[in-house]
């Protein structure tokens, strides 16, 4: 891997290499700097004391859709904001930003969670999957195709969250009943009222998968 970053502020804070999931540009660069200036011992002493990150921007690594990405964010940055604003993964939609609508649903280690109620800094070395990561070899996944076939979107704002939830359902329950689908999707709100077509699309996708 090739890192090209500005020199980290290790002399002052000594923070960068502390966390397992922060192994990134920081570590290589910090190691070099510290070895060069002979402060390795000092760093070892402060290691135990100060694991605090922030409140200003910190460098983190995050695994998204199979790629390791690096970003500099404040601890208060939600995963949704980090994905959308820092990594340009704008398929993630933020509806209510309070965990009520599930439009921002992504997977962390394969489990659907709300990216607006998750802090980017807490993802650690877990794997994030967004709607952009579902297509394989330029082919949409069956749920995405079924949503198009059944015209299951109107404004489309809730769609990526719906598809993340539905794909997870079909991976764990390949032949769901209509009720299974409704229960699984019960957190995903569509203000346009596309729910009937969404259920049809998911049941159809299940038949084709």
């Amino acid at each position: 891997m090739k890192y090209k970053r500005k020199k980290p502020k290790t002399e002052k804070t000594g923070r960068i290499s502390r966390r397992g999931f922060l192994k990134g540009a920081g570590i290589t660069a910090a190691g070099t700097v510290l070895a060069g200036s002979g402060v390795l011992k000092l760093q070892a002493q402060t290691e135990e004391k100060d694991k605090t990150l922030g409140p200003d921007a910190v460098n983190i690594k995050i695994k998204v859709n199979g790629h390791v990405r690096q970003l500099s964010i404040e601890p208060r940055t939600t995963l949704a904001d980090a994905l959308r604003k820092e990594l340009q993964l704008t398929g993630v939609k933020v509806g209510c930003n309070r965990g009520a609508c599930s439009a921002c649903t992504v997977w962390i280690d394969g489990i659907p969670v709300l990216s607006c109620m998750t802090l980017a800094v807490e993802v650690g070395d877990k794997e994030v999957t967004t709607i952009e990561g579902l297509a394989k070899d330029d082919r949409l996944n069956p749920v995405q195709e079924a949503f198009m076939e059944h015209d299951a979107t109107q404004c489309g704002f809730c769609t990526s969250g719906m598809i993340m939830t539905a794909t997870h359902l079909l991976e764990h329950n390949p032949s769901p009943t209509e009720k299974d689908v409704k229960v699984a999707l019960s957190g995903n709100f569509c203000r346009c009222g596309t729910h009937p077509k969404v259920f049809d699309a998911i049941l159809d996708a299940a038949r084709k998968m």
């Binding site: 409140p55 601890p75 208060r76």
Partner: peptide, 9 residues
């Protein structure tokens, strides 16, 4: 949200 620091225990 206000700015805050983060500690992973």
């Amino acid at each position: 949200m206000n700015k805050f620091s983060w500690y992973e225990a």
